[in-house]
Structures are given as structure tokens and as C-alpha cells.
């Protein structure tokens, strides 16, 4: 399966989705002008991955900041991951970033996927 690899910019996150090497990560800042457009390839990739996933998947969110339009799309990403067996979310937040910790907790209440919280 093809690797999705997007370099991070000042307003978009770094994204690596690599089935073969078991790397699934969204990190950095997300405040694109058009969040639906930006996350479309991510959602498509996950859709394809879901038809033949690895036995277990640790999906990493390591976000420094995201805007509200991105938060809706992050929920869409989580919803797409929800149906995949062996899925676990690793939600990273900076150790003094209570807002990012709370955001992760709220997402975990909105979808049925195990969340593991980690600080960096």
C-alpha cells in the first residue's frame, strides 16, 4: 500500500501513514485554510487501509495546535479509524498543555477507540 507522506508547514501538520513500517502519525500544527480539502487524502488513505489493516495499529496524534475547523476533521479521521480492528490512539500533548490534554479526552468520549495519553 502506498505511503502517504506530507511535510509539515506553518499551517498544516506533518503526516506519515505507512502500513508496511507500521507508522501512522499526524503531528504539528493544523490550521489550513480549507481543512476538508487538506484531510481528504488522509480520509481516503484510511478508507483503503481499513479494507486490509495490520493486526494492530497505533495511530499517533502529536499536535501542537489545531483550529476548530481541523477539530471537526480530526473527529472525522477518528470516526474512520473507529471501525478498524486492533486500533489504538496514542494522544500526545506537551506536559504543560492542559487544553491539548482535554481536547484528547473529549475526542476519546466521542468515539469508541481506546486512547492512551502520553506527554512529551
Amino acid at each position: 500500500m502506498e505511503i502517504l507522506n506530507l511535510e509539515g508547514t506553518e499551517d498544516t501538520p506533518k503526516i506519515i501513514l505507512d502500513k508496511k513500517n507500521g507508522i501512522f502519525e499526524i503531528s504539528g500544527r493544523s490550521l489550513p485554510e480549507d481543512s476538508a480539502e487538506f484531510y481528504r487524502p488522509v480520509l481516503e488513505w484510511i478508507g483503503n487501509y481499513g479494507s486490509d489493516p495490520n493486526p494492530t495499529t497505533d495511530f499517533v496524534f502529536k499536535l501542537e495546535y489545531f483550529n476548530t475547523a481541523s477539530s471537526k476533521l480530526i473527529l472525522d479521521v477518528l470516526s474512520a479509524l473507529e471501525d478498524i480492528k486492533g486500533m489504538k490512539i496514542l494522544w500526545y500533548y506537551h506536559e504543560d498543555d492542559e487544553d491539548m490534554e482535554e481536547a484528547g479526552q473529549e475526542f476519546s468520549e466521542l468515539v469508541e477507540i481506546p486512547f492512551e495519553f502520553k506527554t512529551y
Partner: peptide
């Protein structure tokens, strides 16, 4: 809102 919204034509949630 986040559960029920869709991104608007203007790109807002």
C-alpha cells in the same frame, strides 16, 4: 456542535 456539524461552504465548523 462537533458531532452534528459539517464543514460549511466557507470552511467553518
Amino acid at each position: 456542535i462537533i458531532k452534528n456539524t459539517t464543514i460549511s461552504e466557507k470552511g467553518g465548523a
